[in-house]
Every structure is written in structure tokens, then in C-alpha cells.
Write a protein that binds this DNA or RNA. Sequence first.
DNA 1: AAAAAAC
Length: 458
Amino acid sequence: MSFADLGLSDELLRAVGESGYDTPTPIQRQAIPSVLMGRDLIGIAQTGTGKTASFVLPMIDILAQGRSRARMPRSLILEPTRELAAQVAENFEKYGKHHKLSMALLIGGVSMGDQQKALEKGVDVLIATPGRLMDLFGRGKILLTGCGLLVIDEADRMLDMGFIPDIEEICTKLPATRQTLLFSATMPPPIKKLADKFLSNPKAIEVSRPATANTSIDQRLVRTDSRKKKDAIVDLLRAGDVKTAIIFSNRKTTVRELATSLKRRGFASGQIHGDMEQPERLKELDRFKTGEINILVASDVAARGLDIKGVSHVFNYDVPWHPDDYVHRIGRTGRAGATGVAITLATSEDAEHLDAIEKLTGMKIPAMEGAAAKAAPEPKGGRAERKEKAEPKRRGGKRAQSEDAPAAAREEPRREESRRSREEPRRAREDRDSREPALVDEGWNGPVPSFLGTGFGH
DNA sequence: AAAAAAC
């Protein structure tokens, strides 16, 4: 089975091929033909399954017919965070390069002027976070009556963030006869209700995979004391073979402090959290992706969905309060068939949260003792991931082929999803399915996209 | 207990 069997256009197949993809992932195989036929779709899938391409690709072909009119976007993609919206926009640019489609990225924290200008000219695809979209809508800058295609991505996360009322309101502004695609890692009742209300006769696709049966991530625990945490992290960064690391903290203030402290100690480090200005957030992310810095201190804004290639280590400077977040955080490493290391610093006060994590993942995180705790283990088993070992700072651009490979071309632990689903008690499945999968979603490795109504294509 | 998202 190749992409050519899915009914996509030649131009699109060319863009896909040029990006290095050749074989569609299960969700792409199942979703693309249905989306091309105009069907509604519920995709139970997480990042790492090739989810983004499963809607981006058919959308490009659907939108290739017809053209946009001023202030009347033809399609809308809703994302929970600004960074995820930017990541999807990057995918549109990549796969739409042989099409003449226009898009606008409507996210908060950046100037509205350029977004408005793009809307005025007319766009084929609107990629938005709910807040900015509602704002612009309220100002009369957008008419959604011509928007015949809606994608609600990461629906369960939208729920967590309290976006459901906004989503419902947005849905009512769209024409009743439209195609709606909804993606969610889990299906809690409110999401089910949303789907019942706004989708008609949807095709349901479920692609799940055990998150931390993810052997590509070597998980370790370091017992420490709150006062020694900073020294511990510095030791781990120095001693281990840390090529690229994300250090998660529970609080924005801690992110700031730790980032400052690491910088002062000479680490090529940066930070990202929700109190930073949006341009700064994207700039830091870009510096990290291009290798200008190799350590990123982050809040949970970066925990989910973000696909950054070649992260060798994830550190939990704090044990996350919500066990799901643990799985999401460590899922930033061990991506694209590479192996990664996830090290969690835990104090005696963290016992309860640690228990919750171990219960969720169904495994005890092995402790690094004594001398071992001084050195972070190397990611083992490696292929591409060990390549630049001697050189802590990656340079942008050239990357190992396997890392750059498409979701489908990558090595994928092909577990028997459907069989597993049948055999497993529903309860356990739901539990597990709320976790982040081991693998990556479509990459976003380019520079920070210019979010403002970029034309793409030539 | 936090974080995320509009101005």
C-alpha cells in the first residue's frame, strides 16, 4: 500500500514523495479515502500516528477545486495551542507546495493586522486557536458561512482547556452542510456528545497504541531533595551524553529561574512557557530546533503534541501533578524510531504523584543510584540518534535521514491494534489510550512559519 | 497545587 493508492492527486503525491514519505500509516490509510469522499470522520488517535497528514493531505486536494473569496475561508482547523497550530500550518506548507492555496494562521499573541489582511484577500485554510478566531469573528473580519470543512483537532485537550463552549459556538457559525473531522486521543462523554451533535454519520477510526510500552524511552528516577535539585540537574546535564534535552517544570516561575541559572552556568539553554510573548516562544522553539541551543526548559505548554526531532533526553525537574502529563512529556523523546532517555527528579513530597504515574504506566520507574545517578545513561540501541554524539549542539538543516523520514517510512512498532482492542477490558484500554504514543507526528523542523497569511505553493 | 487560551 502506498500513498498513490489512496486517491490523492499527482501534485500531492509529488510533495509527499519529496518529503520522503512512501507508505501511509494506518490512520492515513483509513482516513484519507473517506475524507476525499466527503465523509465526516472521528479519529481516535494521538500525535505520533500520522494524524496530521491524515487530514492535511486530503484537505489540500479537496481545496484544490474552487477558490477563496474575501473574508470567507473555505476550511477551518482548530487547535488547542498556538504552537500546535503553527505546526499544522507548517505541514500545509510542506505538502501544499505544488498547489496554489492560501492559508492564514490565526493565533493569539501576534499582531492581528497581518491576519486581517490575509483574511481580506481570502484564504483556503484557516488554522486557528479558538480565542483569536472568536475575537476576529466578533470584529466581523471573518465570515464562516463559506466554510464547508471543519477539523477539530485534539478535542480532548480542548475539553481540558475549557474550549468546548467556544467550539460549539464556532460550529453554529459554519454552514450546516459541511464536512467535519474530529480527532481526539480519548473519547470522554463531553467529546462524544460534541461529536453526536456536530457530525453526521461519521466514519470512526481508532488507532491506539500503548504509550509507555514504548521501549524506545529509557525511564529513570533520581531521588533528590528540593534544595539539591538544581545541582542534580546540572550534574546530569554535564555527566550524561545529553545531546538535546527538554527540562520540564510544573511552574512558569521555576522555568524562568532554572533557565536563567543554566544560562549563567554556560549551558546553551532557552525556555518556553505561556507567560512569554508569542514571538519569543516561537523563537526559542526555533533556536532549539535548529540547534542553536540544545537545552530547553519548558512548562507543560510544550508537553503535548509538539514534534521536535532528535530530542535525546527529557528531564522532569518536577514530578508532574497529573500522571497523563508525565506520559506526554516523556513522549517528546524516543520519537521517529530513535531512542531517548527520560529522567525524573523526585523528592519525598512527590511520592503520591509518583505512585499515580507508576500506576498509569503500569511500571515502576527504575531509580538511578549513587554514582549512576551522576551520569545520565546514554540512549541505547541507537541508529541515527547517536550520530552527533561528540557535538552537543546540532546545526540546523541536515539531519539524519531516518529522523527526517515520514511517519510511515519510519520504523513503527506495529502492534496489533484491533486485536488488542478486542481482547482488552474497556476500562484498561481507556486508561491507556489517554497516553501519548511513542512515535512522532509529522515533523515541523523548518523555521518558524510566518503566520500571517502566507501563500504557499509557487 | 499549574498550565493553557483573546484583547
